[in-house]
Design a protein around this nucleic acid. Structure first.
Length: 418
DNA sequence: TCTGGGGTCCTAGGACCC
DNA sequence: TCTGGGGTCCTAGGACCC
């Protein structure tokens, strides 16, 4: 058996831990650049505010019902997440951290349903007490069913936040009441295809023929169907596997037209991404840059990207930035108002095992400067030293007008009592 | 006026090999 | 006149996840 522990309305819950006055009130958290609503408290959901609603479209409703609004504070959510995950990992022999607010736990050592329920309740109350975050737990024979069990736990107020899916009758009950699009692995495109073929709920997908499913959805869809039948096809992955790409992209606070501002923004994204690269002891073998006018603008949509393969994999900000700068110049088109840009590192490998260039006469040390800058920023706080190329006033920076303090990661933001 | 960001996997088609 | 079969690797695009 596998358990899925999923934090309730995670970002909202993080805000509430340090601001108890939010308890019982409608609260929403916005995506980067204060664009969309990406987390809602139960009270906000009850008002009919949908996931992903653009903030500006919901403003009337927000004012009318005095909904509390927060910008995304990923520093806070990331730190709270690691607290929750470290609590969870003490409760099971195996854990797979699946996302910032979810983890699968190995429950295979438990044989009785009552034991699974008891342990789940213990996990819930301990995590709540030690971190302040409410968690729901679903238990089932496969990951896909555990996802459904978790939904059932959240939906049913009598469940106490725990639901174990064991036994054919109980499983079928849930399958029948789950819409096809609410199954893990079935997105909108697949839901559309299936419903045209007359398959509208999880039970109907489970009972459909392998050939039909494979022809409609391919091998991934077939795996999902088998998981609904109770046959585990998606293993618990306890080891974190090596990263394949690393991306830093952001929308601008206001449209950007000048090449200079675009270059500043991209330089900053490179600096951020390269810093993460070095933290993970990795080096990039290729770099892609993209710029985008955005798809909601009335004028013609312009999106373009360019890639360069590096002679020798690299983790230094300066070298990566000079490459990125070259690429921006290549795709920049004058007269456009850009709303977004980004940098993607690919062909990633371990920085200690870099294949050198046979024909390079003398290998210059590239690591030194970035390392020194990292250590200064670690000691004095992020952003203490940076390349001037990143810009100083940054008029293009994203908006985060309603960001809460970084309660757990910055000394000056420590909450005070009394 | 205002619409996020960061990932992975699968598939089909092309290029190439012997 | 007539031209095989089996395989790998790479890439772009689509779909999915949170």
């Amino acid at each position: 058996m596998i358990a899925l522990a999923d934090c309730n309305n995670f970002y909202v819950s993080c805000e509430r831990v340090f601001n108890p006055s939010l308890e019982g009130r409608p609260v929403v958290v916005l995506s980067n650049n204060d664009g969309c609503i990406v987390a809602r408290s139960e009270e906000a959901k009850a008002l009919g505010i949908a996931m992903g609603t653009p903030y500006f479209q919901a403003k009337d409703m927000i004012r009318k019902h005095d909904v509390q609004v927060f910008s995304s504070n990923y520093e806070l959510y990331g730190d709270m997440s690691s607290r929750v995950m470290s609590m969870l990992s003490g409760f099971a022999p195996g854990i797979e951290i699946y996302s910032i607010d979810e983890a699968f736990l190995d429950f295979s050592h438990l044989k009785k349903v009552e034991d699974m329920e008891t342990l789940s309740r213990e996990i819930r109350s301990t995590v709540r007490q030690c971190t302040g975050i409410p968690v729901s737990i679903g238990v089932a024979p496969t990951k896909t069913l555990a996802k459904l069990a978790n939904r059932a736990a959240k939906k049913n107020p009598d469940s106490g936040g725990v639901s174990v899916l064991a036994g054919d009758r109980r499983i079928e009950e849930v399958l029948k009441t789950t819409n096809i699009g609410d199954i893990w692995g079935i997105g909108s495109a697949s839901a559309e295809k299936l419903s045209r073929a007359g398959i509208r709920n999880a039970m109907e997908l489970r009972n459909a023929s392998d050939n039909l499913i494979k022809s409609l959805l391919g091998i991934a869809g077939l795996r999902t169907a088998m998981e609904l039948r109770g046959q585990s096809c998606i293993a618990l992955e306890e080891t974190t596997h090596e990263r394949k790409s690393l991306c830093c992209s952001r929308s601008f606070g206001r449209p950007v037209q000048s090449l200079d501002e675009l270059l500043e923004a991209v330089s900053q994204y490179v600096a951020e991404a390269a810093h993460r690269l070095r933290n993970e002891k990795l080096a990039a073998g290729a770099i892609t840059v993209f710029i985008d006018t955005g798809r909601f603008r009335k004028s013609e949509h312009y999106f373009n990207s360019a890639m360069e393969i590096l002679q020798v994999p690299c983790d230094g900000t300066a070298e990566l930035a000079s490459c990125a700068t070259r690429l921006v110049r290549k795709i920049y088109r004058n007269g456009n108002a850009y709303s977004r840009a980004g940098v993607v590192f690919g062909s990633i490998g371990t920085s200690t095992e870099v294949q050198g260039d046979l024909f390079e006469e003398k290998r210059t040390s590239r690591a030194g400067l970035s390392e020194v800058m990292d250590s200064i920023n670690r000691k004095l706080g992020g952003g203490s030293v940076f390349y001037a190329a990143e810009g100083v006033t940054k008029p293009w920076a994203m908006s985060r007008r309603k960001c809460s303090p970084h309660y757990t990661t910055r000394w000056e933001d420590l909450p005070t009592a009394g």
